[in-house]
């Protein structure tokens, strides 16, 4: 598998580390235990397009958001994950 890092170009899988689903957004400080529980534990088991976090630890150390099809492994987009998991808007 190969990932086109937006900063480093096309690189081999071994340079990256997978974290997981990029859909959940971290709840704000006053959130209830249930909301945080959902954020920490609940994930969809998607057959098809998913968004997921990958870390380019063997390269630029950027966290990336990939759109990947779990059925074909096709990666349709790779973008910096800056602010993807944040409730607050980026300044």
């Amino acid at each position: 598998m190969r990932i086109v890092c937006p900063f480093c170009g096309e690189r081999e899988l071994g340079e990256f580390t997978y974290l997981g689903d990029a859909k959940p957004v971290r709840p704000e400080a006053g959130a209830s235990e249930d909301e945080v529980f959902d954020y920490v534990y609940l994930r969809d088991n998607v057959a098809g397009q998913t968004s997921e976090y990958w870390y380019h630890g063997g390269g630029c150390r950027a966290w990336l958001k990939l759109t990947r099809n779990t059925l074909t492994h096709e990666i349709s987009s790779v973008e910096p994950a800056a602010g993807v998991g944040a409730r607050q808007a980026v300044k």
Partner: peptide, 9 residues
């Protein structure tokens, strides 16, 4: 991860 993804502000 915290810096880039969660707390970009």
């Amino acid at each position: 991860f915290c810096r880039q993804v969660l707390f970009p502000e």
